[in-house]
Write a protein that binds this DNA or RNA. Sequence first.
RNA 1: GGGUCUGUAGCUCAGGUGGUUAGAGCGCACGCCUGAUAAGCGUGAGGUCAGUAGUUCAAGUCUACUCAGACCCA
Length: 938
Amino acid sequence: MTFDLKKTVNLPSKDLPMKGNLAQTEPQRLKRWLEADIYGTLRTARAGRPKFRLHDGPPYANGRIHLGTAFNKILKDFIVKSRSMLGFDAAYIPGYDCHGLPIETKVVKELEGKLPNKGLAPTPIIIRREARAFAERHIRDMNRDFQRLGVLGDWDHAYRTMSYDYEADILRTLAAFVRQGSVYRGLRPVHWSIGAQSALAEAELEYKDVVDPSVYVAFPLATDPAAIAPELAGREVAVVIWTTTPWTLPANLGISFGPDFDYVAVEAPAPSGQGRHRTYIVAAKLLPALAQKFGWTNARVLATFKGSALDGQAARHPWLNRESKLMVGHHVTLEAGTGAVHTAPGHGMEDFLIGKQYGLEPYCPVDQRGVYTDEVAHFAGRQVFEANPDIVKLLRERGELVFAEDYPHSYPHCWRTKTPTIFRATPQWFISMDAAGLRQQALEAIGKVQWLPPWGEERMRNMFVNRGDWCISRQRAWGVPIAAVRCTACGTVHATADFMEHVADVFEREGADAWYIRPATDFLPPDFTCGHCGARDVEKEMDILDVWLDSGISWRIMERAGLAEATEPAADVYIEGSDQYRGWFNSSLVVSLGLRGHAPYRTVVTHGYVLDKDREKMSKSLGNVIEPQALIESGGADLLRLWTASVDYTDDVPISEEILARIGDAYRKLRNTLCYLVNNLADFNPETDAVPYTELFEIDRWALVETNELARRVRTGYEQYAFQAVYTALLNFCTTQLSSIYFDVLKDRLYTYAPKSYERRAAQTALYEIASSLIRLLAPILAFTADEAWEKLTRGQAGSVHLAEFPAYDAARAEPELRKRWETLLSIRSVVLKELEQERAAGRIGSALEARVDLRAGGRLYTLAEHYGTEALSFLFIVSQVTLERTEGEELKVQVQRAAGVKCERCWHYDTSVGADPMFPTICRRCARNVRLGWYPA
RNA sequence: GGGUCUGUAGCUCAGGUGGUUAGAGCGCACGCCUGAUAAGCGUGAGGUCAGUAGUUCAAGUCUACUCAGACCCA
């Protein structure tokens, strides 16, 4: 009889395959999750537990997801899944931002091709219907994309800013600010298309190269020049400004200087004077270039001073009987011009802002056709661009034109009518930051929020210290209309909170389209008359609200879903990209303060942007774009998730082929670890086969103590949103503690001892607990793989791993003495391994089992080794024999010899007992016993 | 130009309050094993801590500036 000894070796099963095949298996698993509604099941199971609320910042519903949005959603999923496994009732309601310009312009372009009357702009209601359908379509696609990432949430009830109740809430938000007294109407410069006679957004501008008049204009000083510098006393001084839009000069109200730049007053020939000289002020750094341009051959510098010396002085307008205020601001640069910046607050954004600081009106004597109003002397009724040459002529006649030339540059044009645009102050709606103390409230609230990373607090604070009033009106169609009416007779605007709330109720039933469909009278009481003039006829205000107001009220959905009370922050955490300090974190804070008096969040976490290998942004032109879809198809969503965990998300994160290759390596290491665990447990039932903790081998207990420690670190990591620390801890544990130490040592015990022997069962007991812990700790990150391993480990009896909780950290199992002992033991092991490697390099051994290790040590080291035992040490070193000799002193000496005896065919150890059992002449005594025990149970 | 942030081995990251030869995992090289096998194990080589100048007995760690990159604003 020949007995096949190979069959008596307990090799691992193949229940969990090494190859993940994620592109195929993930969609199937996803389908099962959705069919079983594991999100709903989980919420039900956790009902009554403390709630944890992550509130989703709504992505814009206009495309497929990219790496940035995927990264964002995966981070959110890490948080939700881990909080749930930490025992919380963790809700996640995703959302979508629907209104706004990108969708509107997209559908307008599509519509323009289709409309019978080419060139005619589509009506708002047509735009709105198309835009809504467009958003619906993209929400469907994005829902699928996000779910494919393994993100669990209430996808069937994702909130959308265009749903009727949400639109109503947006309008109610405005009403609340009106009631609070924060809303006012005022002028603000916007890009204006003369051709279309309408306001334009940044995205609607096309830049074209044109040639404009470039003029250098003298503004005579109106105040005493000695106040600037004593050397200038009694002189005729003028400030020289530069502009390429002479038509804005009638609206000039000031001149801006850089406070820290040096300026000079130079004596130079006046343009029209026959030998007459004048004193001009320009930036010192620009003087050489300007002197050459102006032909100032022997200009004499009379004085040098900082721009701040000019602050508060005044000049005279070159032809109008008006003062021009001298101001300082940090927007002034020395890259072009004279360092003295012509400032017309009605015709420029920076001009507007600095004008506001100095109390200047956004003066704009230009009507919607681009024509000067009657109040403009010399040029009333003229179109601004046509007036340019005459303005230059007038300046020349008055002797205030220092220099003029043609100037080619790039200038914005209206994308639709292709005409050059102008900046023009128009009536807009604002929320004041100070009227009701919003700014102060915000600064206080910011201090109470936890910011992650911590510098977020300062960034946010600076934003509120500096920000101007919030301009909330837009001259667009796709959004929530500002529900106000204007008296047709006298122009008075009626915008009361009561009226808005009434309209909001209509919106809740019919959607905001009602404003466009119904006549104004439908919203007004039958007896309405204008309180100012008594007339009855009104027209509807057609501006819509800034979409930041839309998303700013999104926390309301937490209240509507019963997840938050009005008396507390609506969410525990917001997590978005760092651009949202200015965006969503900002608008949400203002809206929540206005409506609830507190911040909508307790903690704000920010993540960086996804960049390429050189940490530069991805763009089509650079050709460095990586699509999440491609990654999912080649490696699976778990690969993307693992990458997300591996990087420091608080900073910008790099991704590249190499990085993904490394992540693939890490994935395989983790998966192989799970395979080893699960596949060596195929014949193990923890209910009936487990060995008590105290009866385990010491190395088993060490592995469990290490696992316990891992649970502590990983739980803490998840609690602190430190996913990278979690990733590192898990990967290092698998690589070092498990793969290279415990698993390697354990192979002999698992494979060669009888299947049901105490030795093997002890090993499996530890493996089972390690597997159970490790899989759960990995689950938030490797959402699919962990679930697959869990299913195999629990034979499909425990439900999805995402319903489970993390293993607890057991303080009683910390075993500090054992850990300390093992630190020493493992350091001895590493000395032995080095010695073995030398023998191998010398060609004296191959496998370590060909070796015998002779240890000589004294003191503590000897005691430790002696206590652990030479046989146990031989297994720890994976050699055939170990001897131990006591010496003087602490030093450890290691010598390696060839092992005694011959190689056992079954366990591969060298042993002198091989052949002792006549029935099995090729194997050692230990193997013979196990073969009899396992395969010949007497 | 302003606000905020980042720059440590090929890659991803550790390196409280400044103090011995700067660590980990992966990758790489070489070797072993062939009973975790599209696996496993071992040993080893990799760093002027972006640069410059300072402060200090002593700096990856503090200060200033420079360079490169990111977000927001202008």
